[in-house]
């Protein structure tokens, strides 16, 4: 067999494969082009990529679907970079919020355009041009009007109510889409420990809180948890009884010789060697998921907290 070559770094990519909301590429409405911009990620404080539509009227989030060892064929070309970008509409308030919280500590009412400023991310002031921004600021601030000028002050109470609505909406979509919010145990080789119908409302609420928290500082995320009356969970290591851990080994049993497979056109088929979904999620070591698991195993966690 020929020797395998080492992977070389992918320095150059000429194109991007994107799945974008139609509103992002609407040619009718705007006379200027949409643009990718870098803004401060409200959860991590780091740089993240977003998109503003023409005239900055709408904000979009950019997420990349990326699996190792993937490439694209696009028409009659090959593209090494196998990522798939999603451009989805985003609520600009999530990005405006950290600036208002920061200035809110001074306790003064201020014009927002003096608050939403960032030397490191100059594009952030463009967020105020989004149609939804000024129209929805009352969800997170108290407002005062003096003459023609409007002044805002961050309101934790309003913000919590607004975020709670976000979480509730997310819960209803999670339920409607049948998204597995517990540990993923969909597998024929496993005894399903918890079927979709068994998820408690708390599982959904926690999951939705986790999703919304992707756009919040850790501090705000904790506040929201309290507001939702969800107790904090201990780390899974402390709460999960080791005896109840599921088995990891599930090697498919293959007959060494199976001549039946030669009898048909299906000859080339062999049972695929694939990890089960449960194995995958266990191997992933995803702690967020394990919290739910542990709460399932030891419902006493809640009582202990109180």
């Amino acid at each position: 067999m020929a020797t395998k070559k080492k992977r070389t770094p992918n320095a150059h990519t000429s194109s991007r494969v994107v799945i974008a909301a139609d509103s992002a590429i609407d040619t009718q409405k705007h006379d200027s082009d949409p643009a990718f911009v870098r803004l401060r990620n409200p959860a991590t404080d780091a740089t993240s990529l977003y998109m503003l539509s023409g005239g900055d009227l709408q904000l979009f989030e950019v997420k990349a679907f990326e699996e190792d060892f993937h490439s694209w064929f696009i028409g009659q070309t090959v593209q090494r970079d196998g990522r798939l970008l999603f451009v989805t509409p985003m609520d600009p308030l999530y990005l405006i919020l950290p600036y208002l919280i920061k200035s809110g500590k001074e306790g003064k009412f201020q014009p927002v355009d003096q608050v939403v400023m960032d030397d490191e991310f100059p594009a952030c002031s463009r967020l105020l041009s989004c149609t939804r921004s000024l129209a929805s600021l009352h969800h997170i601030t108290e407002e005062k009007e003096v003459g023609t000028q409007r002044f805002h002050r961050y309101s934790q109470e309003r913000t919590m109510n607004w975020l709670k609505k976000k979480v509730e909406r997310t819960v209803s979509v999670l339920k409607a889409r049948n998204i597995s919010v517990g540990e993923r145990v969909k597998s024929t080789t496993y005894i399903t420990m918890k079927s979709e119908s068994d998820y408690r409302d708390e599982d959904y609420l926690r999951y939705a809180h986790g999703l919304v928290s992707e756009y919040l500082s850790q501090h705000l995320s904790k506040d929201l948890l309290t507001h939702l009356q969800l107790p904090e969970l201990k780390s899974p290591k402390e709460t999960e009884p080791p005896s109840k851990k599921r088995k990891l080994t599930d090697k498919p049993v293959e007959a060494e010789e199976d001549y039946t497979k030669f009898n048909s056109a299906e000859f080339a088929r062999k049972p695929p060697k694939k990890m089960t979904a449960a194995q995958k999620s266990l191997a992933k070591g995803d702690k967020t998921g394990m919290k739910t698991m542990s709460s399932f195993f030891s419902p006493k966690v809640k009582a202990e907290k109180k």
Binding site: T44, V62, G289
Partner: peptide, 22 residues
């Protein structure tokens, strides 16, 4: 620099992540 912030498993299960640059 900030490993404290974990991506929610909705995203990690779907191999989705934020980007810093295009």
């Amino acid at each position: 620099q900030k490993p404290a912030q974990q991506t929610h498993r909705f995203f990690s299960e779907r191999r989705l992540k934020s980007l810093a640059a295009l």
